[in-house]
């Protein structure tokens, strides 16, 4: 079986600016992976390449052995860093929308999560706070039965209690065939649920390691280690 995600000498340039440079990366199935790095390190560029929103300048990126396209979009569930949903739509309309779009969308799971987070399906997005909107988007994304979930800053605007619920949701949706890639700055909140972390800086991968290996070797949390490595 092909690895879930494979990058070979992957580079991306925007004009003269190099955003990613010669990335070699393999993600296995059944993992929860943190993509960590300071602002402007290339996290979102990598995520956009995975989702076919950008094309590599050099090298290749394969999902289940295929370049990003229609086939890979069926199995990749993506939470972008900016919303693309229409503000006037009600939550229940969005669920229907997703059900039409994605054959692997599990509407029942979405309704369960909405209930747990006390979100009314009849509310429209424009009446919601920033954090509630984020929750709705995350519910939509996590309710698909995908192979790869790619979450770009999923919990930034969400209150700590809901953050815990969302992380629990990620753990309980976990299965050995799918992998979750989370880009975030809130390392302390997520590190207990991560299998491994990828440190990225200036468009290069500094480190790919398990959380417990970092704690064992460095005697500190990933959060503390990150602060040390990227000290300004």
């Amino acid at each position: 079986m092909n690895p879930l995600l494979e990058c070979n000498a992957l580079s991306k340039r925007y004009g003269n600016v190099t955003a990613l440079s010669d990335i070699n990366l393999t993600l296995e199935r059944g993992k929860i992976v943190g993509l960590l790095g300071p602002n402007g390190s290339g996290k979102t560029t990598l995520i956009k390449l995975i989702n076919g929103l950008l094309v590599p300048s050099k090298g290749q990126l394969l999902i289940n052995g295929t370049a990003p396209g229609t086939e890979t979009k069926k199995v990749v569930s993506y939470l972008p860093d900016k919303t693309y949903l229409n503000n006037w739509m009600k939550v229940k309309d969005l669920l229907n929308f997703f059900e039409d779009f994605y054959y692997n969308f599990d509407k029942k799971r979405a309704y369960d999560m909405l209930e747990k987070l006390h979100i009314n399906p009849n509310d429209s997005l424009k009446t919601m706070s920033k954090g509630t909107k984020e929750k709705v988007q995350l519910i939509l994304v996590m309710s698909r039965n995908a192979d790869l979930y790619v979450l770009d800053e999923p919990i930034g605007g969400v209150d700590p209690a809901s953050r815990d619920y969302i992380l629990d949701t990620i753990i309980s949706n976990y299965n050995e065939n799918s992998t979750v890639l989370i880009s975030t700055h809130l390392i302390a909140d997520v590190e207990n649920v991560l299998d491994e972390v990828i440190f990225i800086q200036n468009g290069r991968i500094n480190l790919q390691s398990s959380v417990d290996d970092i704690r064992m070797k460095e005697g500190k949390s990933v959060d503390a280690y990150f602060r040390e490595v990227y000290k300004c």
Partner: peptide, 17 residues
């Protein structure tokens, strides 16, 4: 494993280990 992992809010693979 799954229930224990959820209870402790840790990764299931870590609990498995």
């Amino acid at each position: 494993v799954r229930d224990l992992a959820a209870e402790a809010s840790v990764n299931p693979n870590t609990m498995q280990k």
